[in-house]
């Protein structure tokens, strides 16, 4: 619990810097510009700026921009509507929409998955870094929780996506890591074991919208235990991720 508090304090120190961010001056170039009361389609339009009126962009939440008009009215404008304004040089306002092309050019991917690890429930969190459209590396931390034991799985995986432009795009992954298993205290002989493991997997990534994607995968782990036969473990998972 101490670490999150430290993080929070750190953030609060950094916060004023993020508030004092660059503000952009714009002028309405179309007949009118509608201001909504909140960042979403559901919020009502409560004010209209006329052609030629000036406004300042203050911040952004998803694809909605908070603006303040020169007359002092604060409201939210969706990206498409704000593109009907221009800056002092007459250049139209432009902000790249997050769509499929950004998804294909994504560099970072952060996601959560859940599923089944040889009969145990498993939850995972991962961070992926793309080298190009086809190849990325990811660090995945998982916790498999069974009736009699719990395991921590850490792995470094290489993911290859042969058809990155498909909306539902298959991928292959190869990885290596370690699995630490401890028996629950209910059992008399509580012991802890750590094995190195390699894994191979196949899966699908599906782009939903904005910065949101879904993912399902199957993995086969080989545990290099000290017995003569290596142990094989199957894992099924599904989850979601955001990309940057």
């Amino acid at each position: 619990m101490k670490l999150p508090i430290v993080l929070l304090l750190l953030l609060q120190v950094l916060l004023p810097a993020s508030i004092a961010h660059a503000q952009q001056r714009l002028w309405v170039t179309e007949a009118y510009l509608e201001l909504s009361s909140g960042p979403g389609n559901e919020f009502p339009v409560f004010h209209v700026l006329e052609r030629g009126e000036g406004l300042t962009v203050q911040s952004r939440r998803t694809q909605w921009f908070q603006v303040m008009s020169d007359s002092g009215v604060e409201g939210w404008v969706v990206r498409q509507a704000l593109e009907q304004t221009a800056d002092a040089a007459g250049q139209p306002f432009h902000f790249k929409a997050v769509g499929e092309s950004e998804y294909q050019k994504r560099r970072w991917e952060i996601g959560f998955m859940g599923g089944d690890f040889q009969g145990s429930d498993v939850v995972s969190a991962y961070v992926g870094l793309a080298f190009n459209q086809n190849l990325s590396a990811e660090v995945m931390l998982s916790k498999a929780l069974g009736t009699f034991s719990s395991s921590h799985i850490a792995s470094l995986n290489l993911v290859s996506q042969p058809f990155p432009r498909w909306r539902v795009s298959p991928y292959l992954s190869l990885g290596t890591g370690s699995i630490r298993t401890e028996a629950l205290t209910v059992l008399v002989q509580a012991e802890e074991t750590t094995f190195n493991a390699a894994n191979a997997g196949v899966g699908l990534k599906y782009y939903v919208s904005h910065r949101f994607m879904l993912r399902v995968e199957y993995k086969n782990y080989v545990l290099f235990n000290n017995d003569e036969d290596n142990e094989e473990v199957e894992e099924w998972k599904a989850g979601f991720a955001a990309f940057f």
């Binding site: 993020s18 962009v57 203050q58 939440r61 040089a89 250049q91 306002f93």
Partner: peptide, 20 residues
């Protein structure tokens, strides 16, 4: 016509929320 210069404005994004 002026050449159109496209520049991405640096607008503060507030998509993360930290709650205690």
């Amino acid at each position: 016509l002026d050449r159109r210069q496209i520049h991405e404005p640096a607008i503060d994004a507030e998509d993360f929320e930290l709650t205690l």
